[in-house]
Design a protein around this nucleic acid. Structure first.
Length: 484
RNA sequence: GAGCCGUUAGCUCAGCUAGGUAGAGCGUCAGACUUUUAAUCUGAGGGUCGCAGGUUCGAUCCCUGCACGGCUCACCA
C-alpha cells in the first residue's frame, strides 16, 4: 500500500474515533455550485453578501496558508473556492487537516469575492460526507494512461474535463434523438436482445444458452426483423435505440457492443428516410452546439444542408478514377479490383466486389456529409430492388468524416423475393445460422411499403465530439481482465 | 489473428545510446505562512523499474517467452 493510502486510512480512523462519520448516509444540499456562481456573479472584489449557502462537493484542491486555507470543491455543475479562516471556525479549521483532495464534503457559509476577484464561500460549517482513501490522479497533467483511463473511467471523468464533456454530449444526443422521434409520432419499442436466429445483418453473433428452455440463443446483431414484425402488426412509425452485439474485431470504429438506432416507417421509401436522417442530425446539432460547422480530427465538416448525394459507382470513379458498371463481367471487375489492390472473397459476385472496392478505396475519404446510393443487391439482402435497375437496391448510406453513420433502404416486402435473398445470403456468407422462417411467415401476412433506417449512435457521437476512437465515446470499453 | 510501439514512485515523465540495483515535477508526510488559485519556502518519506526465464561477476538497460495496453492492418453489408 502506498504512503498516500496509508495516511488517508489513518485520517479516516482518526475521524471515526473522534465520533464523526466518515461515510455518512445523506445530506440535504440546498445549492449547486452553478446556482451560487450565477446568483453572486455581481459581487465585486472584497464584497460579501450575508446569505447562507449550503453546498456539497468533492475537494479538488487545497491551498493552505497557515491560519487561512483555500480549497476548491466540485459538484456536477462546476467548481467553487472555499475560504476557511481559522479565527472564524477554530475547530472546523483543525478538522480540515484530516481532509484530503477527493473527499466529499458539505459546507455552509456566505458568498464573498476575494481581493483577487475569486467568488468564494466564507465557510461557517463544514462536514465530511465521504472519505476518499485513494489519491486522485495529479491535477496538472491529469490522467493520460489510456489503459487506466478506460479501465477506471471514473478517474478519467474526474481528471479530464473534456472526457466528461464528451459523455455529457452523448447523453444529450441520445435524449435529443428520442425527443425528436417521439415528437414526430414515432413510438419506441424494445425487441428481443436474445434471439434464436440472429438476423437483420451479417455478423458473427455471441452465443449463449438458456437453461430452462434448454436452447441456444444469440445476442442480437440487429433488431431489424423484429421491428418489421411491429410494422406488420400495425404500428406505422417505430424505433428502437439500444445495444447490438457483434462478435468481431475491435477497431477505432468497431466495438463488440454498440448502440444503434433503427427506425421504420410505413408507406414511405428510402428517399423519405434520407429526409428523416437529415432532420434527426440537424435536430441534434442545432440543440447541441452553436452553428452547423464542426471540426472532426483534421477536418472541418459542414453539416448545413443540402448534403451531397452520389452513387456507389460515381464515388468510386471520383476517388479512384476507375469507371465500373454492374453490367461488367465478373472477370473484368475482379481484374480491376486486382489492379487497384483490393482483395476480395472468391464467392463475391460483381456487386460484392464493387461494394468491396467502395469500402476499401472510397469510404474513409468521404469527409463532408454525403449520401451514397445505388448499392448492389448482392450486399443488401433486406432491401427492395431498385425500380430502375435490378442489380441495385433502393438504399443509401450516410458518410461523415470518413465513417459510415447511417444505412437505410426501402424495405423488401415481398416474402418470395425475401426467401430467395436469404438463401443466397446463407450460401454466400458461410455464417452458421438458419433461414428465419418465422420472419418469412410474418411477411406473408403482408408488410406495408416501409422505409427503414439505422444510425450508428457511437459513430455519430464520435463525429459530434471530435473523438478519434469509438472507445472514447463508450464509457466502459471491454478490456482483458487484469490480475492485481 | 499479424506487425510496430509501450509498461520505471499515487499521477506525469526522465534515465537505458556504451550493463555497475534509480531521478525530477506534482501529490504524500513534518514544519513556516491571513488573499491563494499549478500558492510559496524548508526538510523527509516513497520503487519487486509489468511478470518469468536466459546471458553476465553484476540486468531497469542485452536476449527469449508471457501478460496487459496503444497504434496500424486483417476481420467487419
Amino acid at each position: 500500500m502506498s504512503s498516500d493510502v496509508i495516511s488517508r486510512y489513518k485520517k479516516a480512523k482518526q475521524i471515526i474515533e473522534s465520533g464523526k462519520d466518515a461515510f455518512v448516509s445523506k445530506y440535504d444540499c440546498k445549492n449547486t455550485v452553478r446556482e451560487v456562481i450565477e446568483l453572486y456573479s455581481h459581487l465585486k472584489p472584497g464584497e460579501s453578501k450575508q446569505e447562507s449557502i449550503s453546498m456539497c462537493g468533492r475537494i479538488i484542491a487545497i491551498r493552505k496558508h497557515g491560519k487561512l486555507t483555500f480549497a476548491d470543491i466540485r459538484d456536477q455543475t462546476g467548481d467553487i473556492q472555499l475560504y476557511l479562516d481559522k479565527k472564524r471556525i477554530g475547530d472546523i479549521y483543525d478538522f480540515f487537516d484530516l481532509l484530503d483532495i477527493g473527499d466529499w464534503i458539505s459546507t455552509e457559509g456566505y458568498p464573498t469575492r476575494t481581493a483577487r476577484g475569486e467568488l468564494s464561500i466564507m465557510v461557517d460549517k463544514l462536514a465530511l460526507l465521504t472519505k476518499s482513501l485513494r489519491p486522485l490522479p495529479e491535477k496538472w497533467h491529469g490522467l493520460k494512461d489510456k489503459e487506466v483511463r478506460y479501465r477506471y473511467r471514473y478517474l478519467d471523468l474526474i481528471s479530464n474535463p473534456k472526457v466528461k464533456e464528451t459523455f455529457t454530449k452523448r447523453s444529450k444526443i441520445i435524449n435529443l434523438i428520442r425527443q425528436f422521434l417521439i415528437s414526430e409520432g414515432f413510438m419506441e419499442f424494445e425487441t428481443p436482445m436474445l434471439q434464436s436466429i440472429p438476423g437483420g445483418a451479417t455478423a458473427k453473433p455471441f452465443k449463449t444458452h438458456h437453461d430452462t428452455l434448454d436452447m441456444d440463443l444469440f445476442l442480437r446483431i440487429a433488431p431489424e426483423l423484429y421491428l418489421k414484425r411491429l410494422i406488420i402488426g400495425g404500428y406505422e412509425k417505430v424505433f428502437e435505440l439500444n445495444r447490438n452485439f457483434r462478435n468481431e474485431g475491435i477497431s477505432y470504429r468497431h466495438n463488440p457492443e454498440f448502440t444503434m438506432l433503427e427506425v421504420y416507417q410505413a408507406f414511405v421509401d428510402y428517399r423519405e428516410m434520407m429526409n428523416l436522417t437529415q432532420k434527426i442530425i440537424l435536430y441534434i446539432i442545432d440543440n447541441l452546439v452553436k452553428g452547423r460547422k464542426i471540426s472532426y480530427q483534421e477536418n472541418e465538416i459542414d453539416i448545413n444542408p443540402p448534403w451531397r448525394e452520389m452513387t456507389v459507382l460515381d464515388s468510386i470513379e471520383k476517388f479512384t478514377g476507375v469507371k465500373l458498371s454492374f453490367e461488367m463481367t465478373r472477370n473484368k471487375v475482379s481484374k480491376i479490383a486486382d489492379e487497384i489492390g483490393v482483395d476480395f472473397h472468391e464467392k463475391l459476385g460483381v456487386g460484392g466486389i464493387i461494394n468491396r472496392i467502395f469500402e476499401k478505396k472510397v469510404e474513409n475519404k468521404i469527409i463532408q456529409p454525403t449520401f451514397i446510393t445505388d448499392y448492389p443487391k448482392e450486399v443488401s439482402p433486406l432491401a427492395r430492388e431498385h425500380s430502375k435497375n435490378p442489380n441495385l437496391t433502393e438504399r443509401f448510406e450516410l458518410f461523415i468524416g470518413g465513417i459510415e453513420i447511417a444505412n437505410a433502404f426501402s424495405e423488401l416486402t415481398d416474402p418470395l423475393d425475401q426467401r430467395i435473398r436469404f438463401e443466397q445470403q446463407l450460401y454466400n456468407e458461410e455464417i452458421e445460422t438458419e433461414l428465419d422462417e418465422d420472419f418469412i411467415r410474418a411477411l406473408e401476412y403482408g408488410m406495408p411499403p416501409t422505409g427503414g433506417l439505422g444510425i450508428g449512435i457511437d459513430r455519430l457521437v464520435m463525429i459530434m465530439t471530435d473523438s478519434a476512437s469509438i472507445r472514447d465515446v463508450i464509457l466502459f470499453p471491454h478490456m482483458r481482465s487484469k490480475k492485481e
